[in-house]
Every structure is written in structure tokens, then in C-alpha cells.
Amino acid sequence: MHYADLEIAGKRVSRLGFGAMGLSHWFGTPDESAGTTAIHRALDSGVTLIDTARAYGPSESLVGRALRGWTGEMPIVATKVESLGPRRRWGMPVDVETVFPRGQVRASAELSLKELGLDRLDLLQLHLWWPTWGLTGHWMDELTELKDEGLVDSIGVSLPDHRSDVALGLVTSGLIDSVQTIVNIFDPLALDALVPLAHSHGVAVMARCVLDEGGLTGAITADTAFPAGHYLDGYFDATLPRDVYLDKVEALREFVPEYAPSLAALALKFVTQAGGITTALTSMHQPEHAVANIAAVEGPDLPDDVFDTIRTRHRFIKNFNNATHWD
């Protein structure tokens, strides 16, 4: 396992992080036994960060029980404050009083501590942030108060979609310790401004959607369908014909298997190798996923010219995430 040169809560951060959204109900009823095995296997392999959220339903409690059965060094546990309001809050700004009314940050943090069975959160993130809220307000006051009281070590925000530049002012303000945003082969734009700026200010960058919701694994086909209500139902058809997306995925096969054994491994290598990315989050709720993902990042790095070609020639800028959250 490779580790970042930036710590969170005084602990070293593995370049690959355990994304615990897979332990929510969004993928069906979670298998606690498999999830516990996956967490332990990831930690055994050197993963040092688990990222969950109040919005992930049973995820926090499942993570908490898995950690109580873990006898090794405790990982960094990151979670997110539950945001309220209409679904549209993920697609366009709404008033902060609607999303995080006064007291919501503290109430959510206290519930997270209870569900996780912890006395202190290593990292607490707002599960949404818009620049229209400014840099200060009751939400920031509540975050810093929790930090001052020792209930939280580090604070940060998770950005709603691909528009990473909205947080440039926040990451340079000195107010936060981390920022979470979308980074993948198709959308490496965060590498242009947010990532280097955050790195220079000592702000950790947690990359998510590194497999583009599974699209970059090559597993999505023209016939792939998701059940009604599934969070990916309609996702790959949100703004353009699916064939366009699949053609872009197919073009990446020129790098497989010479530089990576699979498309998924290529996608993981790309993000974990990018300078300034502290950790890349990926769902590893199935033990076999944990093994495959960890193996992918432990192999040789992509040559610099290959990395540059992928970054510049294979970007495919779109915002499915935004479109799917318009009411």
C-alpha cells in the first residue's frame, strides 16, 4: 500500500480509502458479515481510512461493529453530516438554513459518534457545500466548536458534484482540513486547480467516484439496467445516448493489459497516482472487491507519458450527477 505525505488526525493516510457507501441500503440490504470481512481484509492490507456518512443508513453502525472486532491499529474514521431539504439541493444551491439548520451539525455528529461507537471522530465533513453560503456562518461555528471540544479532530466538506472549482476559496481560507470531490479519468479537472491548491495549503483531498459509478470498470453495457429506485437508475442515460459513453470507455482498452490488468485497475491507478490526491475512495463492501482494488494500486505506476495521455486525451466532461438530482 502507498501512503500520502499528508496526515489526517495525526495518522498516515493510505492512497486507497474504504468507501462505506456500499454498506448502505442503496445497493440493497447490506450483508454485515461480508462487509465486516471486507473491512478487516482492507485494514489487513494497509488501508487506513474508512469514509461513511449519516446518509448511508446502516453504514455507520456496521462500520462501528466491524471496528469493535478489529484488533489492529484503528483507522481514520471519516463521516459526514446529514444534509436536509429537497433533492434539488444536490443539483443547485439552496439556502444553508434549509440544508443545515442551526443545531443540525452537532446533532448529526453526536448521532454518528453513537452509531460508530466512538468518543471522537477523526474527520467530520459537511455532506454538501455551496460557495453561496460563504466561508463563515453557524454551520462553520458548529464544526469548529466540535473540534474545540475534542469530539472531532479534523473538519471538511464534500462537494456535490464535478464542479470542484467552487471550493477554491474555502480550501485556501485555512478553515478546513479536507475536501472531498469527484476525480476520475473522464473528469480530471480537479487536478488542474483544486488539488494543487489544496495540497499547497495542507488540505487533504479525498477523491470519490474514481470508477465513475462503475462505468469505468467496463461492466456497464448497452443492456445494463438498474431497478426502479436504485440510485443509478437512469444515471448513464441522463444527458446523452449511452452508446457515446460506452465508446469513451472502449477507447481506454488500448492501455489494458500493458499498463493495467483491467479497466478498473487503470482507473484506480490513475487517481491514486495523481499528485496531490490524498486518498481515493472506492466501494469495497464485498471482500473480493477489496482484494481486487488493493491489488490494482499495488502494481507498477503508469508511465508519466501514459498518465499524461489519459489525463489530456481521454477526459470526457459531463455532469450526470447534477442532472439526476433535478426535481
Rank of each mutant, 00 (worst) to 15 (best):
I8L: 01
K11W: 07
S14W: 08
F18T: 15
P30T: 09
D31A: 04
E32C: 01
G35K: 12
G35R: 13
H40E: 11
R41F: 13
L43G: 04
A53P: 04
Y56M: 03
L62H: 13
V63Q: 02
L67I: 07
I76W: 03
K80G: 01
S83P: 14
R89C: 03
M92V: 15
E97H: 11
V99A: 12
F100M: 11
P101T: 07
R102H: 07
Q104D: 05
E115Q: 10
L121V: 08
L123C: 06
Q125W: 08
L126S: 00
L126K: 00
L126P: 00
G137Q: 14
H138F: 06
D141K: 15
L143E: 09
E145I: 14
E149A: 15
G156A: 03
V157D: 08
A167M: 07
G169A: 09
G174R: 15
L175C: 10
D177Q: 09
Q180H: 03
V183N: 03
V183L: 13
D187Y: 03
A190M: 06
L197D: 11
R208H: 12
R208F: 03
L211E: 00
E213T: 15
G218A: 14
T221D: 04
A222W: 09
A222M: 10
P227R: 11
D233H: 07
G234K: 07
G234C: 11
V244T: 15
V244G: 07
K248F: 00
V256W: 02
V256A: 00
E258C: 03
L266P: 05
K269F: 03
V271T: 14
Q273H: 01
I277W: 02
T278G: 06
T279N: 03
E288F: 12
E288M: 11
A290V: 14
N293A: 12
G299M: 09
P303S: 10
D304L: 07
D305P: 08
T309N: 06
R311C: 08
F316I: 10
I317Q: 06
K318E: 02
N319K: 12
N321L: 14
N322E: 15
N322C: 13
N322W: 14
W326S: 14
D327K: 05
